[in-house]
Amino acid sequence: MKTEENPYIPKSATVVAVKNESLETKTLRLRLYNWRAQFQPGQFVQLLLPGVGEAPFCIASSPSDQKHMDLTIIRRGLVTIASHYMRPGDVVGIRGPFGRPFPISRMVGKDLLIVGTGIGIAALRSLILFVAEHREEFGEVDLLYGARFPEDLVYRDEMKPWAEKMNVKVTLSKASPEWGGLRGRVTDHLGGVVRGGEQVAVLCGSPMVMHSISAELLKRGLKADQVFVSLERHMKCGIGKCARCLIPGGWHVCRDGPVFSLDEISLEAIGE
């Protein structure tokens, strides 16, 4: 048995840059050592911090750069907190990429609505960069990004270049008085971005928020097979052997997902 055949063995990568996105969020830029990652937007990897543990993260960089990988990490648990102590040059392990990516072929030539809330935007950044690189292949593209406080916003410096390629709306539910942009929850601003027709919507965020956005999109006339959600579970193996990521309907998030269309799963599977 060779190492290449064993999906449990990580490959090495080094941190080349660490970017502070917000108080709780950092983006690690990894350079893959001696291997290339052929991934598509929406897939995830298992990040191993030596001596700490392993956790799954969606790849947040463009698939056109196979030598590098960005992971945007919010401090929440053991691995994510430890990852905030990483400096350039540190060695980490990467397994993957795993999972079913966003269905790009379903989106080409159609209007696209990308809705991200909180740190969910990290899972969508790969898709956003891909769309920006291949802008002419898509119809109208709307990006709706919601967060709670102004301090929670990530990718602040990238919003401007994105806004040249697509319609970007940022809304804060607990905005400070100085905030000049939209206020309120994401669901309050769906009216301006749901275009109907063949539009494809892509969501990622906390389970509760995704649940309410999905329900709202369906109410506004999008069909279930036009709405795609990227789910979060704590996968341990990434290949459907540990059953930690089972969701109602009998899907493994790691193998059959993390991207599901709403006609495959029920709203209850997203969470509540």
Partner: peptide, 28 residues
């Protein structure tokens, strides 16, 4: 192998750090 060490105040984990292209890998 990780580079964790035990110190008087507990476990200290230092990630293996290298300069330039990565000669250190996680050897499983």
């Amino acid at each position: 192998r990780s580079t964790a060490t035990v110190t008087s105040y507990g476990l200290k984990i230092r990630f293996p750090t290298v300069e330039g292209p990565c000669p250190v890998t996680i050897n499983a």
